[in-house]
Design a protein around this nucleic acid. Sequence first.
RNA 1: GUGAGUGUAGCUCAGUGGUAGAGUGCCGGGCUGUGGCCCCGGUGGUCGCGGGUUCGAAUCCCGUCACUCACCCCA
Length: 467
Amino acid sequence: MSKKYQVVKGFRDILPPESKLFWLAEKLARDLFARFGYQEILLPVLESYDLFACSIGTGTDIVEKEMFIVPDKKGQNLVLRPEATASVVRAYVEGLASQGPAKLFYFGPMFRYERPQKGRYRQFWQIGAEAIGYGGPGVDAELILLLDLYFKDLGLAEIQIRINNLGCKICRPSYREALVKYLTDNEAGLCEDCRRRLSTNPLRVLDCKNEACKTIAQSAPCPGEFLCVDCASHFEGLQRLLNLQKVSFQVDPRLVRGLDYYTRTVFEFQAQTGLGAQNAVVGGGRYDGLVEEMGGNPAPAIGFALGVERLALLLEQKISRSELVAGPEVFLIFSGEEAYRFAFQLLFLLRASGLYAEMAIDEPSRSLRSQLKFSDRIKSKSALIIGEDELKNKLLNLKLMESGKELKLEYQGLKNLANIDWEELKSHLQTPGFAYAGREYEQTLVQNRDLLKLLKIYFNELNKLEA
RNA sequence: GUGAGUGUAGCUCAGUGGUAGAGUGCCGGGCUGUGGCCCCGGUGGUCGCGGGUUCGAAUCCCGUCACUCACCCCA
């Protein structure tokens, strides 16, 4: 036996039917984001090391130890992107800035070299949006409302919105100073990690999971108390707009975000359960200084990133497996070689006409019984049985899988049905005494326009046969 | 990087020193042209890998690899 290969650690195959969840998430994002005026941007997966070191911050874990570094042939360090905001800003500065503000969204894989656990992988997918060149609280509200609608459309109404304001470059330093002073005074009570955070990223102490640290964080100064006039009014403005739309959200004075570039508004969408130790399915915030730092003309901006794996975990609990798997409209069952050839032709005509049709195409001698069994297993809605009898006498034998009932028609009956059109059929349904409306099979049939289409194509093909 | 748990049939798992098991799936039959329910038969395994202890190891010990969960960090 040859060697058995395995996916590399932290990477995974997203197999059907789970892949359908990703497809749903992506499709809804495309439809919805377009209605909000966000245009898709397709970005490279590889960027220069410095892009992230400068934007995310050299002190962060992401840059320090979580990047996949790819040395190229000239010896310069490229990296697999750990997130996309920096890429979007780079692309904006490079190619879009001359056209003014931009509202962009992206979908794609990100890479971080971390120990995998529930809801966290080394390659993970994000859907994100960035609004560059917009400074007011209106666009902050727009993004939050966009996400709120997105989750509601997916049936995930229980997700909580938390917002905070971290201040800007004017007011944040004084807050930071006050926080560090407070934490230093209470250093003895902090956990080992937090004593380290004190020098690396003091804001992070605020959301430590350690009980002792939580208690200390409880009475620590909050960013809100230090906001400058502009930041305070921005934050009030955002809340007013959200309230105007009757979106429920919580102000969480201890909500902080790990990346260096965040200013003013930060927000998270949190799930209550189902994500393991994680709870954030979306994280985002304003980064008013980043565009300038990346070499562009100063432009305020805000964006978010949504973890698709985490979203899929939540959707999995809402959507049953059978709902994810859509069975064929019709399964073609043949008996005999002639019937196989007939069914083979019919199969592609049906597919070309827009129907999802399937048959045991690779097994021309399979028993009728096992074909029917297979048709059942893949949840076909109907099975069209094609045997010697049907071909010779030009009959229809359509089995409706769920009820088990069969629609059997002689040539003339099939002709009558196949020759009327959809509009006519609908209008006839209202007419008392319409020849077919009273019968159970036909009622089922006309409820599904696809089956009428099927009848027409089948009838046509039968007529091509030599008598 | 740190800690804990788990590796046995395609899948889910039982099996604490004495012949390798169940459920499910798959194939076939009962039912020759009719699925689901039922019954019968068949298929299926380097017990993660390597070493050690033992008359004898899936089982005990050591090592190793993989996966999972958690910490750190983050979506």
